[in-house]
């Protein structure tokens, strides 16, 4: 139980804020430099461990570096310093339905998106019915997805992503998709996921979601880790820091 699923070791991420960015060769040559910039550290020396089987919440105000950290966990950004090691398969739900091809049918897109998320064709075929069932778009599954409503689009994307069956699932506020019925389905799915002993890392602004779902949480403030530990104490520390209105 105390094994570590994801370990984050003194991770820092620097972004360059460009005063003048020369994305053309002409200006790069004329000025004799590619850019003028100053550094902005979105994350500074953040370290924590996510225990296997836990649901881990990342909380903090806007601009605190949560999403940057999440993208580092999902291997989309590479940390400027430090290391992130994850045990097992990591899947990230940062935006659902990215990679859908509008002209292809829902079914074809399930295969396409599944393989983008790292599933093999066999796995997708095995889970196809479950995915279609979960998305609730059975009637339109052989239609091109460009004809889907935005809700159908998101639900199909979510259904694929949640069926990837990773060891570590990284979620960025995507729980807020679909209608109440679909959200309830998602909630059940996450519960099953936790019962199966899988690890979830979750970013959200909704404190009640964190309180309900997470057992561990980390609070980020301006790129610095404030506290990490049991969810309720972290949430309390975060809420206490906010100016009362």
């Amino acid at each position: 139980m105390n094994a570590v699923a994801v370990s984050v070791e003194s991770v820092s991420k620097r972004f360059r804020l460009y005063k003048e960015r020369n994305q053309s060769l002409k200006s790069a040559i004329m000025r004799g430099r590619v850019s003028v910039h100053h550094d902005f550290w979105a994350l500074q020396n953040v370290s924590f461990d996510v225990p296997t089987g836990s649901t881990f919440g990342l909380i903090g105000s806007n601009g605190s570096g949560k999403s940057t950290l999440l993208k580092c966990l999902a291997r989309i950004y590479r940390p400027t310093m430090g290391d992130i090691t994850a045990r097992g398969r990591v899947a990230a739900l940062l935006e659902v339905g990215s990679g859908f091809h509008p002209e292809l049918s829902g079914r074809e897109n399930i295969y396409l998106n599944g393989s983008i998320l790292g599933m093999t064709k066999k796995e997708v075929t095995r889970k196809l019915d479950e995915i279609i069932d979960f998305s609730g778009v059975e009637a339109f599954i052989d239609q091109p997805v460009k004809n889907y409503s935005s809700g159908m689009y998101v639900r199909l994307g979510f259904a694929v992503a949640i069926n990837v069956d990773p060891d570590v699932l990284i979620v960025d506020e995507v729980l807020a998709v679909g209608d109440a019925e679909f959200q309830e389905k998602c909630r059940q799915r996450f519960a099953q996921f936790r019962e199966a002993g899988k690890t979830v890392v979750l970013v959200t602004h909704a404190m009640d979601t964190v309180a309900e779902m997470c057992d561990q949480a980390a609070w980020l403030h301006h790129g610095h880790l404030q506290t990490v530990g049991p969810a309720d104490t972290t949430i309390k520390a975060y809420l206490d820091s906010l100016p009362t209105t």
Partner: peptide
């Protein structure tokens, strides 16, 4: 670009 910014592969 959209894919690269959202999914790792």
């Amino acid at each position: 670009a959209g894919l690269i910014q959202k999914v790792y592969f």
